[in-house]
């Protein structure tokens, strides 16, 4: 028996169970996850990136934007209902989707499969980043809702740390990637682009969207760390 090299221990393999036709509620939860990614989270991402862009106009303009947002009617309710709760759901359910998928891009290194895998990892990066981002910028330190004109200074101090700057750059790219491919996936899975050509064309649109957002996002990071407004003063209010 020179050739018989056991390669694995005996194990009985369980098969995949058949469809539980019309049973359970995972359809609703999965579709909710998908929808929330576009509305309100995608919409909020656009708003946030546009607001950040104000930083290029300087500390005052940036402060005014933060002031404006924090004086929207019912702003705290809006914040929880349209940002924090959907974000929490999207993130936690997303992690469970990631855990239940079995990536096989090693065996099948095809473009769609890479994108499938990247969508999961960019999501994880976004989740980890957002925990620290919210903790450090929203819930601790100088409270920006009450002191909107401190915003520029606060972000500038944060980004003065080169590690933090690197984290912001990586997260910015990952989030723009996750969102723009998410838009493409949404259109494909909800049957908005059922045709192969339509999916390809919409793919170009999503690439353009992702690039635009990433460039805009990185430009606003540059506003804080570049030579435009060094050592932005803390306002005397």
């Amino acid at each position: 028996m020179a050739t018989a090299q056991p390669t694995s221990a005996p194990q009985l393999q369980r098969g995949v169970e058949p469809l539980r036709a019309a049973e359970g509620s995972s359809f609703l939860w999965r579709k909710l996850h998908s929808l929330l990614g576009i509305l309100p989270l995608g919409a909020f991402l656009l708003e946030h990136l546009l607001s950040n862009f104000e930083a290029l106009k300087g500390p005052l303009a940036y402060g005014q934007q933060v002031y404006f947002l924090n004086h929207l009617p019912l702003v705290r309710v809006l914040e929880w209902v349209f940002i924090f709760l959907p974000l929490l759901y999207h993130a936690v359910y997303g992690v469970s989707i990631w855990l239940r998928g079995k990536s096989n891009v090693v065996y099948y290194p095809w473009a769609g499969n890479w994108m499938y895998t990247l969508q999961r990892y960019t999501g994880l990066i976004a989740f980890a980043y957002l925990i620290q981002h919210l903790w450090r910028e929203r819930f601790t330190g100088v409270m920006l809702p009450e002191n909107p004109y401190y915003a520029f200074h606060k972000v500038q101090m944060e980004l003065a740390n080169p590690w933090m700057l690197a984290i912001y750059v990586v997260a910015m790219i990952a989030i723009c990637w996750h969102f723009s491919y998410g838009v493409w996936l949404f259109a494909a899975k909800w049957g908005i682009t059922p045709g192969v050509t339509a999916r390809r064309r919409f793919g170009y649109v999503c690439i353009a969207l992702g690039l635009l957002l990433a460039v805009a996002g990185l430009a606003s990071i540059y506003a804080f760390v570049g030579p435009l407004y060094p050592n932005a003063p803390v306002p005397n209010l």
Partner: peptide
């Protein structure tokens, strides 16, 4: 149903 079309990750 559970295990249905929603599980596709495209």
């Amino acid at each position: 149903g559970d295990g249905g079309i929603q599980e596709c990750g495209y």
